[in-house]
Write a protein that binds this DNA or RNA. Structure first.
Lengths: 185, 185
DNA sequence: GGCAAATTATATCGGCCCGATACATCCGGT
DNA sequence: ACCGGATGTATCGGGCCGATATAATTTGCC
């Protein structure tokens, strides 16, 4: 997931780790916060795999101006392979795209995602959330009254959240369909 | 976290891994699903640490009846140390207890948690969620109209969820306070 | 009675990610 | 002149996941 997000952000501009993390925060709105303990090793791995390369700025393009020498910053940029990889993930709508984390990140890049892939991700996510909702409904019904008060409260809250998310997804899907109809006119 | 949950469940009765996982599902209502890839290694580790021991049933107490010999089941039960550990975690209300996963699991054991610890966990969680909420509000305000439609939709949904959770927590806290007042009368 | 499918049951492996921790620099305020 | 807070990179141990393998037992069906 982190790899995917990094790939997406580096499409905007070359960046170093610290900046990447801030943009990551903005993009994902703190609903998902990657730590440096993931970020830096991931950057390393991606470099090793040839998805990104370290930019060798002689010093003149350094955004912070006053760049004289003391620069411990590693600025990374995408390689062709990195771009391909990003496009490949964007085109994917498999089951892994509907779990909590992955879904949010995929959605953050929806404007660059093909319309029919967006649709399949949205629908897959809805199915996934509906399953969770049914599980919670069953648990609440099964346990009835004799269940622990706090556990029931927890399940009630979970059920409400899933119900809201399904409604939200329905609206998004409807919007997508409307757009599709417009396009085909 | 898994360790905590296992400790809590084994207080009810000795159990083997598979059963433990089912009870885990019931308890957490699929808002959190631990995999076998976590469960079995954790069980091992806990045994190594002396928190649980493998029950050496000669065969007669095997719940499935018809137990003649072919039993590949490892039934675990708590040790004194295990019980102490559980009590220690129950009595804790530190920052780690307010992140998403931990909070839910702690709450699932609230009926065995001291009232003032419950209170501190609830309030800590509220503070945590409020922070997230403010982050999302800021992001939405900052970006205004020029932000990507999908990202905004994601943030909007996140904001709504955090607002609801804060309201929910307020109710729970009010309920706790009412109980506290009752008790002190 | 017999066979396939689902359930019960345990286990390992590679890999992602987190929290804690450690450094070092640069800038603004006092 | 100094200090705190942001900037910036990095590692380590550990928790958890998904995929995968294996095998016995139960259940459903013909």
């Amino acid at each position: 997931m982190l790899e995917f997000a990094i790939l997406g952000l580096l499409h905007e501009a070359p960046m170093h780790g610290y900046e990447l993390r801030k943009r990551l925060h903005e993009l994902l709105g703190a609903f998902r916060a990657f730590s440096y303990g993931s970020l830096y090793p991931t950057l390393r791995r991606m470099q090793r795999c040839g998805l990104i390369v370290e930019e060798e700025t002689g010093g003149e393009t350094d955004r912070t101006a006053r760049s004289w020498g003391r620069r411990a910053r590693r600025v990374y940029k995408l390689t062709g392979e990195g771009k391909e990889r990003f496009a490949a993930i964007l085109a994917d709508a498999g089951p892994q795209t509907w779990d909590d984390d992955a879904f949010g990140i995929h959605m953050a890049f929806f404007s660059r995602t093909p319309a029919e892939v967006r649709m399949r991700i949205l629908e897959g996510r809805r199915r996934r959330v509906e399953e969770r909702r049914e599980g919670l409904r069953a648990a609440l019904a099964r346990a009835g009254e004799q269940i622990d008060r706090y556990t029931r409260e927890l399940h009630r809250m979970g059920l409400e959240s899933t119900e809201r998310e399904v409604r939200w997804l329905n609206e998004l899907i409807a919007h997508e369909q409307a757009e599709q109809r417009e396009r085909s006119e």
